[in-house]
Design a protein around this nucleic acid. Structure first.
Lengths: 179, 179
DNA sequence: TGTTTCATTCAGTTTTTCTTGAATGGATCG
DNA sequence: CGATCCATTCAAGAAAAACTGAATGAAACA
């Protein structure tokens, strides 16, 4: 019963700091319904000074190679993790991307933006379903207008949110020269 | 095989407009990993002029009373659905809240804010795990600083996002006199 | 008071999601 | 060239989440 910190977490040679950080990321990921393994992987890389390879990750977190691989791919797609090429080393190594801006924009780009972009088509299709002569037509048009308004809002909000996550709002990250 | 629109959706007396709208909400909810039934319920109320009761909802969407009840409770907690008291009618009736602002702030309040508020405690605990004499202490302090920066960002961003969702950014909703 | 109507709960079941680990095949090496 | 190392896939299994519907008891009614 030594796995209280991260709830079914790794038992191997991770420091208390690493365990606590991973637990924190796992909780945060749960808010967005992201798989536990994804959060664990990011937490491990985040708290490890040197780049790690697939077997390092799978081994230290006590998760399967398959999970480690899928999790790493997801994190790479997002831009939360990047490959590191080490001269003379065959295995691919990875390290955590530390800029929240990149994480946030990656998430918006991958998870939100496509839906907003498809929205126009869906709205068009929705419009077709209104029968002009029906007694509900007026009410339905009102609702369609409402949804259209929401869609416009998201289209406008996306760039704003990106701007929000820009350098000037991250005074502390200046230390790393990033932003 | 007449259930293509909303994928396992209701087959009863819903109009094409309703079916299409519900399908749209189900897709949108999936982005945030919200249960299908919740999206269906909101979609049904959104596209129905008059308030509905539990049995209406359960019946028209072909979902169980239990699901309808839980979904309604979740939507009420969020502020996305409100009770309507009809004089002389015993059953509770519900209608959709149309202001996106309320939906957004409800979601932030219920799903995000508690975690941000607990963050301070977790950061404090994380700090305790750093052993000052360890060779990793410097690296770990750097990472702690990073997380602290993220936490600060979210603490600041929450109010800003709320402001974003305020009236002036919803020109179309003025028609309803809401915002 | 007894009867009916209703909101609410929750153990059991179904469905979905996540994880596992062995298998595949391409790349690298000697 | 064969042997080894490695990234990647995926069918099967495990775990988690969502759903069901009957049971409960409170409230309204007559």
């Amino acid at each position: 019963m030594s796995k209280s910190l991260s709830e079914q977490g790794p038992a191997l040679g991770l420091s208390p700091f690493q365990l606590e950080t991973i637990a924190l990321f796992v909780r945060a990921a749960a808010v967005f319904s992201l798989p536990r393994s994804v959060a664990q992987i990011y937490g491990l890389l985040f708290t490890t000074p040197e780049p790690l390879n697939l077997d390092d990750i799978s081994g230290r977190l006590a998760i399967s190679r398959g999970s480690a691989f899928e999790g790493l791919r997801w994190l790479q797609d997002l831009g939360a993790v990047e490959r590191v090429f080490l001269p003379g080393v065959r295995k691919e190594h990875f390290q955590a991307e530390l800029q929240l801006r990149k994480l946030a924009t990656g998430f918006l780009r991958n998870q939100i933006q496509p839906h907003v972009e498809n929205g126009a088509d869906h709205l068009q299709r929705l419009k077709q379903t209104i029968e002009p002569s029906s007694k509900d037509a007026s009410f339905q048009r009102e609702r369609l207008r409402q949804i259209t308004g929401w869609h416009k809002f998201f289209s406008r909000a996306l760039p704003v949110i990106r701007a929000l996550a820009s350098k000037q709002y991250f005074p502390l990250s200046r230390r790393n020269g990033g932003g």
